[in-house]
């Protein structure tokens, strides 16, 4: 049995109430959406907040709506299962629908939310353990100790961004809205993340992620998401790759973005892909992209199996680019 530590429960009925409740005790409160990340972590003794603020009754967070320009706004509290099966998400942003549909298990996709997935705690084999297990080693950089067991001389935690939805959202150029009593700010999903595994996002303690906005898909936008994990269900990714390509009428690359997750604290946007522009996405071009990704991506022992994870970066990038699916605005 893994009992939860005691806390005070607050269940606001509106966004206004939520933001005020969060503003009252920001350093002492944690938000609970689906609970599929927070509650296991609390059971492991990783968090012991004085107050837990439940988001389920905040209806403003749950919707999925179209923007006038043809994009979508997804509420931070929209369940992953809804994101995965919404016909508009499936038609316009197929890599996002696929990523959301590959999270964990059917039960967890019904409970967990897209906002929770974006704010998922980073993961590491030395961190996601019971207090008893961690105590045997004396604690790590992320929790209770001075040492990193992944990078022995390291001074910065390298626990991995292990969520599925950030990579496709970055590839699509999505943004998020953060709301607090101090005001509202919008930033690109890529800027939500910070390179520190202890806390890999810039959301302040008094802010709530209220919505994710996806720009209207470009004409001839093609995208894909690939996930590698030990089992075909339940597990977090050992490697995740999202790709989005805009082609012109002649099939030449206008813009190509490849984002890799489950490396360190940051989702990595592969650099130097301008070399593919104005040419078809041929076998040779795909090999160049795969080689660039392989050179730039270094999986760490934070998730284990770092040797073969490095070896499969290039093949998985090739698989993603071979499986690009078109975005359709209708539907």
């Amino acid at each position: 049995m893994l009992p939860l530590p005691a806390f005070e429960w607050v269940s606001p009925g509106s966004l206004d109430e939520l933001v005020r409740a969060l503003g009252e005790s920001p350093g002492e409160s944690l938000l609970l959406a689906g609970g599929t990340d927070l509650l296991p972590n609390m059971k492991h003794g990783l968090f012991a907040p004085r107050r837990v603020i439940g988001l389920r009754r905040v209806r403003e967070l749950r919707g999925i709506a179209e923007t006038p320009a043809g994009g979508l706004v997804i509420g931070g509290g929209a369940p992953l299962d809804r994101v995965a099966t919404d016909p508009r998400v499936m038609a316009r942003y197929p890599a996002l629908a696929r990523a959301a549909g590959l999270v964990a298990s059917p039960q967890i996709r019904r409970m967990g939310t897209i906002g929770g997935n974006l704010c998922l705690e980073t993961r590491c084999v030395y961190y996601n353990q019971t207090a008893f297990w961690r105590g045997a080693l004396g604690g790590c950089l992320k929790k209770d100790g001075p040492t990193c067991f992944v990078v022995p001389q390291g001074r910065r935690c390298v626990a991995a961004m292990s969520a599925d939805t950030p990579a496709p959202l970055i590839a699509y150029g999505a943004s998020v809205e953060l709301v607090s009593v101090r005001g509202t700010r919008t930033l690109p999903v890529a800027k939500l993340f910070a390179g520190d595994g202890v806390k890999n996002n810039v959301r302040a303690a008094d802010e709530v992620l209220t919505k994710v906005e996806l720009p209207p898909p470009a004409e001839r936008l093609f995208s894909a998401y690939e996930k590698v994990r030990s089992r075909a269900a339940i597990d977090f990714p050992l490697l995740s790759i999202a790709a989005a390509a805009v082609l012109d009428a002649g099939g030449h690359v206008v813009e190509l973005t490849v984002v890799v997750g489950a490396l360190g604290a940051l989702p990595r946007v592969v650099r130097g892909l301008e070399i593919t522009r104005a040419a078809p996405l041929s076998r040779e071009a795909i090999d160049l992209v795969a080689e660039a990704a392989h050179t730039q991506c270094n999986p760490l022992s934070s998730l284990g199996a770092e040797d073969w994870r490095k070896d499969i970066v290039a093949p998985v990038v090739r698989r993603a680019l071979a499986g690009l699916a078109p975005s359709r605005i209708a539907g």
Partner: peptide, 15 residues
Amino acid sequence: GEPVLACITLAVDAD
């Protein structure tokens, strides 16, 4: 009506 994991659902959230 939806399958969920009761071990990581708070009783208070089932109110």
